[in-house]
Amino acid sequence: MKLNEPLLNSFELDGIEYDIDCSFDTVLDVFEVFADDLLNELEKFQVAVQIMTGQHITDALTFLTVWEYIDEHFIKTRKEKPVLDRNGNPMPVPKEEIDKVRLLDIEEDASDIYASFRMAYGINLFEEQGKMTWQEFSALLNGMPDNTPVARLIQIRDWKPKPHDPAEYKANMRKLQNKYRLDREEE
């Protein structure tokens, strides 16, 4: 995100112009696709590109290239490029590598995120669907003040006991961490 340039809603790649819907709710739809266990990895990328561009691209190399461009320039979900096999297919990434430190889940914590946007900024996220871009949403979420529900969730999940913490405080924080932990589905 650059404040001296307008937010883009299209890009050109290999001579083809792609309009892109980068509203935060569309990006959240893409995240749901990536969480879908019924689709293989290639299908997930293809569907993600279709959701964001409105174009059904059947050539794997093309939709992977388009996805990489979208991810690198618009969404920025990954810090490093995916490892590809000999056929150009993305290699699976172990879950423990993806979720090393997971303090927030957009879906599970949706009500706290909504409440925090209302409290901190007076923004109704339902009214912003199709309008607020992912970049705007991410910037506001990352800059959330400490007195909001989502900031408190992150503080609880990230808490580590310190030697000088009273035993009652430690017990309370462990209870809250258990209540709000994100790995419940793995039990």
Results as ranks from 00 to 15, higher is better:
F45C: 09
F11S: 08
D183W: 02
W67F: 11
G143Q: 14
I123Y: 11
N172G: 01
K44A: 14
Q50I: 01
R184A: 13
E72N: 15
T133Y: 13
R174V: 02
D105S: 15
E68G: 13
Y121C: 06
A167C: 02
K160A: 12
E41A: 14
I154V: 13
H56I: 07
L42V: 05
L140Y: 07
H164S: 09
I113L: 07
L104Y: 06
T77P: 07
V47I: 14
A60P: 15
D99V: 00
Q177V: 04
D158C: 09
D99G: 01
V93N: 12
H56D: 13
L42N: 15
E41D: 15
H73S: 03
R184D: 15
M52F: 05
K79L: 01
E185D: 10
L38E: 12
L176T: 02
G15W: 02
A171K: 09
I20R: 04
E5R: 08
M173S: 11
E186N: 11
I156L: 04
H164N: 07
T53F: 02
E5I: 00
F74R: 08
N4F: 05
R152T: 09
I75N: 11
L125A: 09
E12K: 15
A167S: 07
P82W: 06
L8I: 03
A171C: 06
D37P: 05
E127R: 08
V49I: 10
E127Y: 04
T53I: 03
R181S: 12
Y69I: 00
H73W: 01
V49P: 05
V30C: 10
I123L: 12
D105E: 12
